[in-house]
Design a protein around this nucleic acid. Structure first.
Lengths: 207, 207
DNA sequence: TATCTTTACGACCGGTCGGTCTTTTTGTTA
DNA sequence: TAACAAAAAGACCGACCGGTCGTAAAGATA
């Protein structure tokens, strides 16, 4: 940081590298990510990357943090802007779908791709990815629990099971990013919420 | 093939290589698959592989075929052994879950991993994987359509949407292969079928 | 047993990878 | 402008990759 408060040169480089690395990692895989390609794509030297991160592993972990930040800004925060309860639950689902429907970043879902990539490969990265996944599921389950506590869902509804359904529908849209997938993902959750919501007619309509 | 009908030496080697390659590809990725590792794991020479497949790409395509054969034997065929209709639809879901619940092959789902790996990488392999995925969805949709035609599902039920739900629940179990996932995946489909089936009490109970 | 085809081996090549090291440039502050 | 620290550059290394080629072994046939 400089005296005038503007971003230092190094900081600008770091975010530029992370942006580029996130895209490349989403396409080529987090492990298939090549530092040479990242450097070439930005027109910088590969050795310079090691001035900012000690190793490829550190850069990979930084990319995960970067992706989570993006996810927080574009999905979680907008959902939290909705009133707690079924509406917030729907918003979490809808914003996630919108995030990938819009193709904000190419190559599909970074977390989904990385999660499948490291599913069977124990290590720091898999643990970190599992944490992120767990945090997301906890968030969904928490919103569902809120809805239950607010009396918007039938007693006996299992928040974790509801969160699981939302997650499943979301993952599948990433796997098959066709218009029909997004429609089905919205219709399916809508149909399910109609069966567990106290006031089915007060649900947001799936577009 | 020899005169006595037993497998020729080359054929035995080919299947051994494909078995090993399928496991390694599931863990390390279909692209991350290393021919050297395959050869070392089997105690054969790497160059020998090129006597059976012209290139790595050809071996990768052969691995896909190998995986599909396994899938056909262990999931599709048992489902087809059930009577057409809702029961067969349930069997397709249940057998798929059982396949991964049992951990038949380590590293999760080959097709799932490979599909996410090549999601954003155009080429022969992605096209081939898309074909396999499409064939599986067509199968599910066909079974659902049968159930509809047999009058076991409410008129107006969308078979493709139902197939999508089944696929979503299945994919999510692969992503999070915990006992709770399999339970949720069965409960969720059961709950949904109860809302669209003509005779909800005739459904198989989820274990 | 002799022959011949299939199959397997091992040395080797060009290329890319992650990572290290030294040097040069750049931007900020005094 | 001079000095200093941060940042970027570029040559280089060992390891591993997919792939080639000439040669040796193994099994079926006669």
């Amino acid at each position: 940081m400089r005296q005038d408060g503007r971003l230092a040169r190094g900081e600008r480089t770091r975010t530029a590298v992370l942006d580029q690395a996130l895209v490349l990692a989403t396409v080529s895989g987090l492990d298939g990510l090549s530092l040479s390609q990242v450097a070439d794509a930005l027109g910088v030297s590969k050795s310079g990357l090691f001035a900012h991160w000690r190793s490829k592993l550190q850069l990979q972990l930084a990319v995960i943090d970067h992706a989570r930040q993006q996810w927080t800004d574009l999905v979680i925060r907008p959902a939290l802007a909705e009133p707690a309860g079924v509406r917030r639950l729907w918003a979490a689902h809808d914003r996630r779908l919108a995030f990938y429907e819009a193709g904000t970043l190419p190559g599909g879902c970074f977390f989904g791709n990385a999660h499948f990539e490291f599913n069977a490969r124990p290590g720091v990265i898999r643990d970190r990815l599992a944490e992120e996944q767990s945090a997301w599921m906890t968030f969904l389950t928490g919103v569902a629990t809120e809805a239950l506590d607010l009396g918007e869902l039938r007693a006996g509804t299992d928040p974790a099971q509801l969160a699981y359904l939302i997650e499943a529908l979301g993952v599948c849209t990433v796997m098959r990013p066709e218009p029909a997938s997004f429609r089905y993902a919205r219709l399916a959750l809508h149909a399910h919420l109609r069966t567990v919501a106290i006031d089915p007619d007060n649900l947001p309509e799936p577009k």
